[in-house]
Design a protein around this nucleic acid. Structure first.
Lengths: 206, 206
DNA sequence: GTCTATACGGGGATAGAC
DNA sequence: GTCTATCCCCGTATAGAC
């Protein structure tokens, strides 16, 4: 919002670094305490800065929240797309879907980030619109994989792919609510179990 | 906490009625605005009472929140058990599971209540423990149905039933995040679609 | 860029009248 | 049981020194 543009020679300004640190700190606080109780004062304390100074980098508390959401969805998107790419060009749609689900789950659990859980309702309309646009793009990744699978005849007919996608994302996103890192299962184990649930019903078994 | 016991002759005291009204109002506010921004003063205003008077019925804000959660999980439990009962004694485990899922989803969407979404983290330990015990009882309903189905050989072997249950509940609970009441699908349509996803993979198709 | 100081409102909670 | 009055804290945000 202020002087947080990169300088011509590609250097990162002090303002940029501080801004990035504030976003990181705020994200961590959201994870630990929920969107409630994450105040300017607390963010400032955790970032070892005075509360007033924050307003040099952000115009309001909501602006920080928006930045955190943006960074969260953006991070997930980046890792999911990368996982799909790593699956290789000769992978099937189903394999890519599995990779995408796995990446989504790993990210959600690692960052304990499920954007919707953090009260988006209270975001001003402008910010909310931007965020929902970002969410739609993220959802489109999975929607595309499912449609591709359907076109290639890999899915059992008769399903509403939108509903299947949203139920699936829900199942995975909700894992953050019950996952025990000290338990026996890794995030990938859970993603695999979920794929097994789909395979044989949604996915044609032949 | 105070005089909210029923009198010997079974009559409901004024205090009880007021307390119940406060819980109802608070629940509605939580639904509408999220757990953020639901203040004692707002609850008081919506209940047409003065803020100070609330402390006759509840000892703190958290106490109200706990009561709302209790009422929410209790309500869901009641309706799910009723749906199972209505499925009849000669119904299969799978039919009862379908009925239970449907009731869970209807309740979640109607009350826009998904307890976990409302920052439980910030509840004091005592209150949180009680709430999680209640959640476990609720989860046990579904766990029992799945185990029963497994015993009767209605499930395809090789699945971790705990994981299947938690993924399933997640898929359904998350529906509240994307459901559009003005859309074409009813809650039961969605529950049915989900059962179709399970049938043929988790449920043995024969 | 970051600090200090401060304005202002709204939060939870209590005391005592009625 | 409910009201009124009030305390004190902490929230967001701003102004101006450095």
């Amino acid at each position: 919002m202020q002087t947080d543009v990169q300088t011509a020679n590609g250097k990162v300004t002090k303002a940029e670094r501080t801004r990035a640190r504030l976003i990181e700190v705020a994200k961590r606080l959201y994870q630990e305490h929920g969107s409630d109780h994450v105040t300017i004062r607390r963010i400032a304390a955790a970032a070892k800065i005075e509360a007033g100074s924050i307003y040099y980098h952000f115009s309001s508390r909501d602006e920080i929240m928006r930045a955190v959401l943006e960074s969260g969805v953006g991070g997930a998107q980046h890792e999911v797309l990368q996982a799909i790419a790593e699956a290789g060009a000769d992978s099937s749609s189903i394999e890519r879907l599995r990779a995408a689900f796995g990446a989504h789950l790993r990210y959600t659990l690692r960052e304990h980030f499920s954007s919707r859980l953090k009260s988006i309702r209270r975001l001003p309309k402008r910010l909310r619109e931007h965020h929902m646009q970002q969410e739609r793009e993220y959802a489109a990744i999975f929607a595309d994989l499912l449609q591709e699978a359907q076109r290639k005849g890999l899915l059992r007919p008769g399903f509403d792919l939108s509903v299947v996608r949203m139920l699936s994302m829900g199942a995975l996103t909700w894992v953050a609510e019950w996952y025990d890192p000290k338990g026996a299962m890794t995030p990938d184990d859970i993603a695999d179990e979920f794929m097994r649930m789909l395979t044989g019903s949604v996915v044609r078994t032949k």
